[in-house]
C-alpha cells in the first residue's frame, strides 16, 4: 500500500469536537473550549460584523468583544436550552447594534451631519444578512463533492448540467447533492437562527 496509505496523515484521528462538545466544555469553563469556539465561529462572526459595519477595524473590535463577553458571561449560557452558535450569533447582533448606535450618536454630534443621521437606518442587523452569512458558513463546511457542487450552483450560478460537465460527474449525482445539501443547510439555519429570540 506504501505511500498512498501512510501519508493520508491524521485527519481521521484528530477528531474535531462537535459544536455540542464545544458548548458543553464552554459551559464548564474549560479554557480549551474558547479556542475551539473561536476556531468554529470566528469567521462567521467576523463576516457578519464586516457585512453589517462595512469596516474591518470595527468588525475586528466587535469580534473581539463577542468572544470576550461570551467567555465572561458563559454562566448565562445553558447548553441544554440552546446551541452555542445561536447564542454567539445573538451576542454578535447586540454588539453590532451597539456599534451602529454609537456611530449615529457620533454623527448626530456633528451638526453638519445631523440631517444625514436622521436618514440612517435603524441600529439593527438585518435578518437576511444573518441568514446569508450562516448559510455561507455552513455551505463551506460541507464535505466534497457536495461543497464544490453547491458553490458552483450558488456562487457561480451554473446550471446543473453545467456543473455535471465541469466536474465530470453524472447529472443525477449533482442534482441529488444539491437537494440534500439544501435540506442540510435549512436544518443548520434553523438551529442557528430558528429559536433566536432576539430577532
Amino acid at each position: 500500500m506504501g505511500f498512498a496509505r501512510v501519508c493520508a496523515v491524521t485527519s481521521r484521528e484528530a477528531d474535531t469536537p462537535t459544536p455540542a462538545e464545544i458548548a458543553k466544555a464552554f459551559a464548564e469553563g474549560r479554557p480549551d473550549s474558547l479556542s475551539d469556539a473561536y476556531q468554529r465561529w470566528s469567521t462567521m462572526i467576523f463576516t457578519l460584523a464586516l457585512r453589517a459595519l462595512g469596516n474591518r477595524a470595527d468588525a475586528e473590535d466587535v469580534t473581539q468583544q463577542v468572544f470576550v463577553s461570551a467567555w465572561r458571561g458563559r454562566a448565562n449560557f445553558d447548553p441544554d436550552s440552546g446551541q452555542l452558535g445561536a447564542w454567539l450569533t445573538g451576542i454578535t447582533r447586540h454588539r453590532i447594534a451597539d456599534r451602529l448606535t454609537a456611530r449615529s450618536r457620533e454623527l448626530r454630534n456633528s451638526e453638519a451631519a445631523a440631517k444625514l443621521a436622521e436618514e440612517r437606518p435603524a441600529s439593527v442587523v438585518d435578518d437576511r444578512t444573518v441568514d446569508r452569512v450562516v448559510i455561507a458558513d455552513e455551505l463551506a463546511r460541507l464535505g466534497d463533492p457536495r461543497r464544490t457542487i453547491l458553490r458552483l450552483a450558488f456562487y457561480e450560478d451554473l446550471t446543473h448540467p453545467q456543473i455535471a460537465e465541469q466536474l465530470d460527474l453524472p447529472l443525477g449525482t449533482v442534482k441529488s447533492h444539491i437537494r440534500r445539501g439544501l435540506l442540510h443547510l435549512r436544518g443548520q439555519l434553523k438551529e442557528v437562527t430558528g429559536d433566536d429570540t432576539s430577532r
Partner: peptide, 13 residues
C-alpha cells in the same frame, strides 16, 4: 432560503 442563496457573501477570516 433559496431566495437568499443567490447573494451569498464571501466569508472573511
Amino acid at each position: 432560503m433559496l431566495g437568499e442563496m443567490h447573494d451569498l457573501p464571501q466569508l472573511e477570516t
